[in-house]
Design a binder for these strands. Structure first.
Lengths: 217, 217
DNA sequence: CACGGCCATGCCACTCGGTGGCATGTGCCA
DNA sequence: TGGCACATGCCACCGAGTGGCATGGCCGTG
């Protein structure tokens, strides 16, 4: 079952129809939320715009916040997939491995307007508390799933060893920092620019343990 | 059953009354949510138990999730206060300084049942998605405020330098790990045990950059 | 001590997010 | 072609959260 990332032409008509309304909902939601604001846009507005009943909306999405963060979730799904597939290298720090997986996941997001949509979602999340909270919740869920994959595939310590969890939290922190910088770039940055921001964020990681600072005047 | 950080006897009668209903709401909420479950408990139930109108509930708290995480928020408030007061040491890593502040903040939480209430809140957040999301949101807000304080008091790099942000995210990650372990301890762990969990989490931080792992059979 | 202002509260009506049940239509397969 | 499964639409309902307005108790001033 391919998630939602790819067009997937080899589907039954039924599934394609369902997928089409799903995408129409995401498109319309990001458009309306960006224009009128998140809370100012009613679910009825959105459903009316797509000509869909409220009931089917909730069969496709967990809630109002969910639909706007679908592009980001697609990326995280690809990340988990990378984590599952990647050949482990015993001598290499886990930190580097998960960074590679994240970069690869972003590289996989080739759908035409993925970059634009994930950016709109980020800008909305930055100014809407409930969306921000839901986005954090998604990141947290992903880190838990990623941790489960790592523990299944690698020989990490006991469950009381926090290091693997910290690795993933640090990865997510770098991702959020990179996403924020990238979304604030002028114009309409492409996913290549996001990769660059991500690399810069990764480069900042080693320095955070030793960072010192002088008091200001 | 005191809840908030300071007793503050030197308040007007009006303020004391307000504070008392606030505490009664927190107490009753944690009790009811733990007994019947978060979503199974209606706001009307809670308000009826405290004999307060729904309207005044919302004058004291941002929502249903908010009231149950008040004890945790009190701790974060103390943390920000420590961050504000602490004498900076130019030669010492920022990471160590913020760790000290967090330990000090926990040490300040001397109210009788703070430990019990923060533990109940954590257990609820672990099994209630909306509460988990709200808790993450609170952590995020705190890191932003902490970052603002650090940038005001210390000479950190430009705003594009992610290192300070990563320091705080790592601190929060360690806190969450420690809190989770602590809340799962058998019996009714005290705040001293929380301090111990925190120290253990801090000790795990340096190893996360270099962690390697062999693939499993 | 009395008055007037202020502030928290209570009550009421309303919007909107989210859910369950049931009927219907349409793709799918034998 | 007929029956099955599934997605959808419609409807009624619950509960969270908000705004407005009246009330009553706390508080400073004369």
């Amino acid at each position: 079952m391919t998630t939602t990332a790819v067009p997937a032409d080899h589907l039954r008509l039924r599934e394609r129809k369902k997928l089409r309304t799903r995408r129409a909902l995401v498109d319309a939601a990001l458009e309306l939320f960006t224009e009128r604001g998140f809370e100012a846009t009613t679910l009825d507005d959105l459903c009316a715009a797509v000509e869909v009943s409220k009931r089917t909306f909730f069969r496709n999405f967990a809630g109002k916040e969910d639909v706007a963060l679908t592009p980001a979730q697609d990326m995280w799904a690809a990340f988990l997939d990378e984590l599952e597939r990647r050949e482990p290298d015993a001598g290499r720090p886990v930190m580097e491995m998960v960074q590679d997986c994240l970069l690869a996941a972003v590289g996989r997001m080739t759908a035409g307007d993925w970059a634009r949509q994930v950016r709109l979602g980020e800008l909305l999340a930055a100014r809407t508390p409930s969306m921000g909270a839901y986005g954090l919740h998604l990141c947290d869920r992903t880190t838990r799933e990623a941790l489960a994959i790592l523990r299944r595939r690698l020989d990490l310590g006991g469950v009381d060893d926090l290091r693997a969890r910290l690795v993933l939290d640090l990865l997510v922190a770098a991702w959020r920092g990179a996403l924020k910088s990238w979304a604030s770039l002028p114009g309409e940055p492409a996913s290549g620019d996001l990769t660059a921001c991500l690399r810069a964020a990764f480069a900042a990681i080693p320095g955070c343990l030793t960072l010192t600072a002088a008091p200001k005047a």
